[in-house]
């Protein structure tokens, strides 16, 4: 057991798998010598050598496209895209091959790769460094999309992702890369993909979130408690495939659901959660299933960021509206 930040926990997961499985490789821009711009892969090259942990040329389509080939030939690459905004040159590879190769070859070739990248805003970064576009990836059949909200989960989920024979997009909420410290086992452990976690039980309303927004949601839960509301907080952890069962059970119990996500509102993860509420808990609903999300705009540059990344008061405000409905 050691106290770790999320950066350290992810590093520890990578180290665990690199040690255990010679087929695991890590590469991406500045991943080797530098240890990644966020130091997530720090010391891994020193420990495991340049053949296994290395810098790629500056080309994302190349990073993911070569990983497709490595998977076909039996390796398990864990590749890094430096920031969420720079996945797009690789989008063709992700959509056209990573998500499809298994089906295309009727199961002959498995895309046992992980594509990691920091995502999300609120850190006053330049353009293209703050987006929260997980809904795009969740919309692609054939991919799994995982987002941890704390160091412990980050390690357990990443190990599962690396061991998964399906391709996993592993999105790292960079705002809380170093914000939370937690006890995390040094040794190997896994957290199954596809399972949400009830962070706190409650009776009045189901609050669903993931990633960096969990922290904001927790603050709102405290505010709500002062008003006498008992909130059930669920951390989705895996966006796709979504854990319908955990959501359904909770919403049937509370009759109210509010999703809290960062990305643009329309056609987002919140819409999926509302659908689940309708499909699985319609007769139990006490208020309209509701989503709180970012505006349907790009995240503003740092000076305007405060307008976009809403404060916990906003979550509380929505909770109140649903409780007063």
């Amino acid at each position: 057991m050691a106290v770790m930040t999320m950066v350290q926990a992810i590093n520890s997961a990578l180290e665990t798998k690199l040690k255990e499985d010679p087929d695991v490789l890590c590469y991406g821009e500045d991943v080797g010598v530098e240890g990644g711009v966020f130091r997530v892969t720090e010391n891994l090259q020193k420990q495991f050598g340049e053949a296994r942990v290395f810098d790629s040329p500056l080309a994302e389509s190349g990073i993911v496209g070569t990983a497709v080939g490595m998977c076909i030939a039996g390796l398990r690459p864990v590749v890094e895209i430096q920031f969420c905004g720079f996945v797009y040159p690789a989008f063709n590879q992700i959509l056209s091959h990573v998500a499809r190769m298994h089906n295309r070859t009727r199961g002959r070739y498995r895309m046992s790769m992980v594509i990691r990248f920091p995502y999300g805003g609120g850190i006053k970064a330049p353009e293209h460094h703050s987006e929260s576009m997980e809904a795009l990836y969740a919309h692609i059949p054939g991919l799994k999309v995982v987002i941890p909200s704390n160091p412990y989960d980050a390690k357990g989920l990443l190990i599962s992702a690396i061991e998964s024979d399906d391709p996993v997009l592993y999105l790292e909420p960079k705002k809380i890369y170093r914000a939370i410290k937690q006890d995390v086992p040094d040794e190997k452990f896994t957290i199954p993909l596809g399972q949400a976690k009830v962070m706190q039980e409650g009776q009045d309303l189901t609050l669903v979130s993931y990633g960096a927004m969990i922290r904001e949601a927790q603050k709102a839960v405290v505010m709500a408690k002062k008003e006498g509301y008992s909130i059930e907080l669920i951390d989705l952890r895996t966006i796709s495939p979504i854990d319908r069962e955990t959501l359904a059970q909770s919403i049937r119990k509370t009759g109210r659901v509010l999703s809290v996500t960062e990305g643009p509102k329309s056609f987002g993860v919140g819409a999926e959660i509302i659908s689940i509420a309708n499909e699985e808990a319609f007769l139990n609903l006490e208020a309209p299933p509701t989503r709180l999300a970012g505006f349907d705009t790009v995240p503003p540059y740092p000076r305007g960021e405060g307008w976009y990344f809403y404060p916990p008061e906003r979550i509380f405000y929505e909770i109140k509206k649903l409780m007063d409905f």
């Binding site: 821009e29 500045d30 010598v33 530098e34 711009v37 810098d55 040329p57 500056l58």
Partner: peptide, 11 residues
Amino acid sequence: YAISTPRNKQT
């Protein structure tokens, strides 16, 4: 350099 990556690793 491209951040930490030297020119000889680009091409």
